[in-house]
Design a binder for these strands. Structure first.
Lengths: 179, 179
DNA sequence: CCTGCACTGAAACACTCGTTTCAGTCGAGG
DNA sequence: CCTCGACTGAAACGAGTGTTTCAGTGCAGG
């Protein structure tokens, strides 16, 4: 992992990264542009380039920030049986407060598939690995991959249709079969 | 559905749409640009704008073309039991020949979630509806939503990791439970 | 022949983009 | 005081964007 920009670990960098992260959660990463972003978080394109090296460096930092949020979730999970774990994960995924993060997550996932190069590289594969590691602790294959698929598929469905009842019932049915 | 551009149903339009569709399957929709596209399919930005009205009109037409490919698949499915249907769908999804189309599909899905306006609007919700209609004919809720989730989740996994064996086993395990 | 219509090429317009150049400001260390 | 390095503002650069304007083709129907 190479150093991005000049002020690699500076507090100002962390501060701006957090502000940019909040901005990106609202507006998405797809047509992110330095000038509007800088204006809204009280900075300038010049400074962002100085601190992150390039726009790609900034995007990588933002994606890293999103993955950190994901890892925090996975680390703070209650230990228990497979069915309980699945229900806890779905509760988190379905929470309206996490909607923005998950939309960003889907966007990054999609882009990583289409453009294997660029700042997105590896993002999709990394999250599969992270989640599978957690599920693999309580479920053998192929049940772990299947459970991950149910969670991710139901999440896509929920984000597109907003139907928390139907998607929640599908996850619950799968969890019940694991008890 | 309003008319896009001047030559709404002209053969030249269909021809260029098909060429543009092939181009987009290879390069993705994310940073599609008129000048490079036009050059590669033997046309000009001027003509694309004339036939499709605007870039957004072209993108809408391309997304419509992708959805048509999806509907063709769903219409040509062998009638049978739920387990057989699931296996047939997965066989199609996992086929390397369809990899490009499915990447495009994930890309459109992700963008539609982040930008509810714009040419992508409704794309994500529409495909959920299409697939659920097919699965709903052989499975009651919540099993239909669950089966859709398994297929979509396993597809995301496959596209990210390329692990056809693991993802295929997960879908097979789910199908076996439906028999 | 002529008019109209579908279509196209070249060039320009009015941007926005990421990035660079240059000229600073500011506080800490010697 | 002076210098050094972290940081920043203003402006410009060159490239690329979707779109428009204008001036045509070439071919069908009258």
């Amino acid at each position: 992992m190479t150093v991005e920009g000049q002020g690699a670990g500076s507090p100002r960098r962390e501060e701006l990264l957090e502000a940019a992260y909040a901005y990106v959660l609202r507006r998405g990463l797809a047509d992110l542009s330095l000038r509007p972003l800088a204006k809204e978080i009280g900075s300038s394109p010049r400074v962002l380039l100085y601190l992150f090296g390039s726009k790609d460096g900034l995007v990588r930092a933002l994606l890293g920030r999103a993955r950190a949020a994901e890892l925090t979730l996975l680390a703070g999970l209650p230990a228990g049986d497979a069915a309980g774990l699945l229900r806890a994960l779905w509760e988190w995924l379905a929470a309206p407060a996490h909607r923005d993060l998950l939309r960003l997550w889907v966007e990054g996932y999609g882009r990583a598939l289409v453009e294997p190069d660029g700042p997105w590289a590896g993002f999709a594969a990394a999250t599969v690995r992270d989640w599978l590691a957690v599920l693999g602790r309580v479920l053998p294959e192929p049940a772990a991959t299947e459970a991950l698929a149910v969670l991710r598929g139901a999440l896509l469905d929920l984000l597109a249709t907003g139907d928390a009842h139907r998607t929640g019932a599908a996850v619950a049915a799968h969890a019940a079969r694991l008890a």
